[in-house]
Simulated scan of single mutants.
Amino acid sequence: MGNQNDTNKTQPNNPLHGMKLLNILELLVDHYGWEKLANKIPINCFKNDPSIKSSLKFLRKTQWARDKVERLYLELDRKN
């Protein structure tokens, strides 16, 4: 029988491990601003009256958009 802690193992090879979507989004907005972010990832929550709250709500429901945000964060992280 598997231990319930198996799901809580660390993920040393996952650069997103421990990063919250909120933190990722805040870093991207601080770096790019909403307008540039909307140019890089053209989704309505970045284009029309953008806010952290509305963007988080959308990204938590929409995996493909979240994947794009996470990829952009990883690209930014590699450049720094």
Rank of each mutant, 00 (worst) to 15 (best):
L16A: 05
N44H: 09
H17F: 15
H17G: 01
L25T: 02
L37F: 11
M1G: 15
L74T: 06
G33R: 08
K79M: 10
L21N: 02
S54W: 03
K36V: 08
P12F: 00
A65H: 01
N48D: 09
K57F: 09
E70G: 08
L72W: 03
S55E: 06
I41N: 00
H17D: 13
N3L: 13
K47P: 04
K40A: 09
R66F: 05
D67W: 07
Q4S: 13
D67F: 05
F46G: 02
N5V: 10
L22H: 09
F46K: 05
P12E: 08
N14D: 07
I43H: 04
I24W: 10
V29H: 07
K79A: 14
M19N: 07
N48L: 15
T7D: 13
L37S: 01
H17P: 01
R66L: 10
T7G: 09
D30P: 01
Y73E: 03
L59Q: 11
K68M: 03
T7V: 04
K79L: 09
Y73Q: 02
I41W: 02
N80P: 03
L22W: 06
N8H: 08
P12D: 05
K57I: 12
P50G: 06
S55G: 03
N8M: 11
E70N: 11
Q4Y: 10
I41T: 03
I43K: 00
I24K: 06
W34E: 01
I43G: 01
N44W: 04
K40P: 06
I52N: 00
K20V: 05
E26W: 00
K9H: 12
K40L: 15
E70Q: 15
F46H: 11
H17S: 14
D30E: 15
V29T: 13
K36W: 01
